[in-house]
């Protein structure tokens, strides 16, 4: 097998991987889960030239809470 290329993957979940990312992002939780938001993140990652995007949907972990009402 040939020498492998270095790869750079990026997680594209909600507002970000930090559990408080939603609190510093203007978008609401509903907007972050919208088709438009997914499209925007994935296409931004492809334009930037990342090797791959990672989607980490945990069935229960709530990672992207907005500010507490």
């Amino acid at each position: 097998m040939s020498a492998s290329e270095f790869s750079v993957l990026i997680d594209v979940d909600g507002a970000g991987s930090h559990p408080a990312a939603g609190s510093v992002t203007a978008a609401t939780a509903t907007e972050l889960l919208s088709a438009r938001s997914v499209t925007r993140s994935v296409q931004a990652a492809e334009r930037a030239g990342f090797t791959a995007v990672v989607f980490d949907d945990h069935p229960f972990r709530r990672r992207h809470r907005g500010p507490t009402p």
């Binding site: 790869s7 990026i10 997680d11 970000g16 930090h18 990312a21 990652a45």
Partner: peptide
């Protein structure tokens, strides 16, 4: 390779790209 977990997606993805 690396799997980057960006703290805030919009800001950090844009900056890395």
């Amino acid at each position: 390779g690396v799997r980057i977990r960006p703290a805030v997606l919009d800001s950090d993805l844009d900056e890395i790209g």
